[in-house]
Every structure is written in structure tokens, then in C-alpha cells.
């Protein structure tokens, strides 16, 4: 009885297994078809969505260019026929235009002003660039109320922020102050960049001395034939300029600084960025 029942259970189990297997394989075939059908549906939806997005893009582009034209001509051109989405599309087109205009303000060296503390203060950014390459950006936090005052900034300590604020009357002429500061920062960034380019492009010229403000630069040149050394001091007295106001030469050959050729070199160094001036001097064979 026990044995029979055991056998009965086992055979029943194996029967169930066979049934289950066959049941599973049929739906498998079925599910392959449904799977593919689902995929077709999904792709159709994706296609429709892409088509709709591309259409929206085109509509936006059209609206945007008519917006740009309007701005240029100050002409009120009637928009296209109103569809249910026209207001939204118009807003979107204006959004893209505003975004581009704000980006342009940033690119042309705008101060990227942000109001802080419910309008009681502002944050401004000062961009620097040299020969088309954007360099460091500095930031200032200025209190407007109760009094106009610089509260925080990340400008190097050797840039005279406070005296520039006083000189330009920041209280009443915020922009004049920012312009002057921007000029100083750009001149500093420019001198720093020139020094970097000088070191990269003129390995044979030795930089004997320079300071953090890059306002003093002492260089050593070698005159090719005689192999004499020339010590050249560039003095950037005007810290708001990238060009030195004074160039001084020292050489064992006392005649050299007074020679017409080296006088010409001196004025070249005062009129052109130092790395380009050196390239010119090397070309004519005045320095190694």
C-alpha cells in the first residue's frame, strides 16, 4: 500500500512535469509573437514621438527667427495662426531667445549681476581673457543697503580693489568702478599669460626675475655672435596695461644699449606683447 502509493505519487509528479513543460513551450511560442508585437508598438510610439519633437523644433525655429527679426526691425509681425499650442510655443521661442541673449551678455564680459539678500546686495563676476582665450573669473559681493560696501571678493590682494572703489566713486558710479577693476584684472591676467607664453616659446631667454603682479620682468638675452649677455628689465608701471612703460638694458658692452638696433628693440618691447616682440628680435638675429 505504501509502495503503491509512493509509486502513484511519483508517476503523478512526472505526469505533472510533462504537462507543465508542454504548457510552458506553447506560451513561449505565443509570447514570442506578443513580444514582437509589443516591440512594433513601442517603436511606433517612439517614431511618432520623434516626429512630433522634430515638428516642434521646426515650429520653434520658425518662431525664433521671426522673433529675432522683430527685434531687429522693431516691427510687429503677426504670428502664425493660433493653434492650441501657440501660446506655449511662443513662450518657448522667447525662452530660447532670452537664454541666448543672457549667454551673449556673459560672453562679452558682462558682470553677470545676481541680486542677493532680497535686493540688499549684489554678486558680480569679472571675466578675464587674453587674445581670445578666456582666463580666470573673479567675483565680488557688494552690499547696497544700508551702504554701498564690498563685503567679500576673491581678487588677489595685490590688486588695489579698495582704492579703485574710492577713485571711481563706487557709491554712485558702480559701473565705472567695475570697468576700472576689470581693466586692472585683465591687464594682470594678460601679463601673466604673456609670461607663460614667453616661457613656452622662448626657451633660450632666461627669466631672471618676476613678481606675482607680473609688473616687473627681468630677462636675460644672449647676443648670437659675441655671446654677450644682455639684461633687460621691463617695468609695467601702469598696472592697468599689458605693455611696459619702461625698458632698461644692461650689458658689458656699454655701446650696445645705445645702438640704433637695440633702441629699436626697446621701443618694440614697449609697443608689442613681450613674447611677440622676442619672436621678432630672434628673427632678425639680435638674440639667440
Amino acid at each position: 500500500m505504501e509502495a503503491a502509493s509512493t509509486k502513484g505519487v511519483l508517476s503523478h509528479l512526472s505526469l505533472l512535469e510533462v504537462q507543465a513543460r508542454s504548457r510552458r513551450s506553447r506560451p513561449q511560442q505565443q509570447s514570442r509573437v506578443t513580444e514582437l508585437k509589443a516591440k512594433v508598438e513601442a517603436l511606433k510610439v517612439q517614431k511618432e514621438q520623434l516626429e512630433a519633437e522634430i515638428q516642434t523644433h521646426q515650429n520653434l525655429q520658425k518662431l525664433r527667427s521671426s522673433l529675432d527679426k522683430q527685434c531687429a526691425d522693431e516691427d510687429d509681425v503677426e504670428m502664425e495662426e493660433d493653434s492650441e499650442n501657440s501660446e506655449l510655443l511662443r513662450l518657448m521661442a522667447r525662452h530660447t531667445q532670452l537664454k541666448d541673449l543672457l549667454h551673449a551678455h556673459h560672453l562679452i564680459g558682462g558682470y553677470d549681476v545676481i541680486k542677493t539678500r532680497q535686493g540688499k546686495g549684489v554678486c558680480v563676476s569679472l571675466a578675464t581673457a587674453y587674445e581670445g582665450v578666456y582666463l580666470d573669473t573673479y567675483n565680488l559681493e557688494i552690499d547696497l543697503k544700508p551702504a554701498v560696501r564690498i563685503s567679500r571678493h576673491n581678487i588677489p590682494p595685490f590688486i588695489p580693489v579698495n582704492s579703485l572703489a574710492k577713485e571711481n566713486n563706487m557709491q554712485t558710479h558702480m559701473r565705472a568702478f567695475l570697468d576700472a577693476l576689470s581693466q586692472h584684472l585683465n591687464a594682470f591676467a594678460g601679463r601673466k599669460q604673456e609670461l607663460k607664453l614667453l616661457k613656452e616659446q622662448h626657451k633660450s631667454v632666461e627669466v631672471m626675475e618676476s613678481n606675482v603682479l607680473c609688473s616687473i620682468l627681468v630677462l636675460m638675452f644672449t647676443v648670437p655672435k659675441e655671446k654677450t649677455a644682455v639684461l633687460c628689465t621691463l617695468d609695467y608701471i601702469d598696472h592697468s596695461s599689458c605693455l611696459p612703460k619702461r625698458v632698461h638694458l644692461e650689458c658689458e658692452d656699454k655701446q650696445l644699449p645705445d645702438s640704433p638696433q637695440w633702441k629699436k628693440n626697446c621701443s618694440l618691447l614697449m609697443e608689442t606683447p613681450v613674447h611677440t616682440a622676442l619672436t621678432a628680435m630672434r628673427k632678425v638675429g639680435d638674440i639667440v
Partner: peptide, 30 residues
Amino acid sequence: LSRLKEEVEEMEEDLRQQTQMNGISLTSCT
């Protein structure tokens, strides 16, 4: 629509601020 309107208004205000601070009014950027 109302959310985008809000964002566009914020951007208009931002543009007004930049224009005033920079003293330069930009009419188009493509």
C-alpha cells in the same frame, strides 16, 4: 504653461538687470 511663463518672466527680469548693469542692450544673438 504657467511654470514656463514664470521661468520666462524671471529670465526677462534677469536680462533687464544685466542690461542695466552692463550698459549694453543686446537685441539679438544667433
